[in-house]
Amino acid sequence: MAGDADAFGQLFLRHRDRLWAIAIRTLSDPDEAADALQEAMISAFRRADGFRGDSAVTTWLHRIVVNACLDRMRRKAARPASGSADEAALDSLALGHAIGDPSAASDTAIDVRAALRTLPPGQQAVLVLVDMLGYPVADAAAILGISAGTVKSRCARGRARLLPHLAHLRQGGPATGPQAGNRSAAGNVSPARGGGDDQS
């Protein structure tokens, strides 16, 4: 036994939107994301006595959620995909869509998801945190327990590997200036965009 269900419930409520954002973007499937989030919260609850206050609670919680998602991804990768959603996503990726087809944001989402899945979990995790959710590199490093340099190189490798998979979507899309991904702010874990809940 570790934590207090009440305090933990509140902690969860305070951070749930951001934690959910990580889980859903990492795992794509809402059921999987919910399972991972639940698993992570239970795990955090049990391990609260091991929390020594050497990192911000937000980082600690984020790390547990990211790890739960990565574990799930690895488990999933170890067995053949049976979900029709996965197959549909991969089919759509293989077939490609009309270049620049503005018809469906959901197609874009499916393609991005399928493309992300072609990356190793470590690269997926940094791209979810840094590119999708806008966390500064330093915060992503703290969450993942790796150096900022490793975050940067994984980001770079991941983006380069995504390039051919997303070729059909890049036409006409918004571009960012050079060094756009080089966010270096440190401190509290706070996405530059998205997320939506308050800070602890």
Binding site: V112, M132, P178
Partner: peptide, 10 residues
């Protein structure tokens, strides 16, 4: 650059 933008907009 657009890869990052695509990821952010998904």
């Amino acid at each position: 650059a657009r890869v990052t933008a695509l990821l952010a907009s998904a």
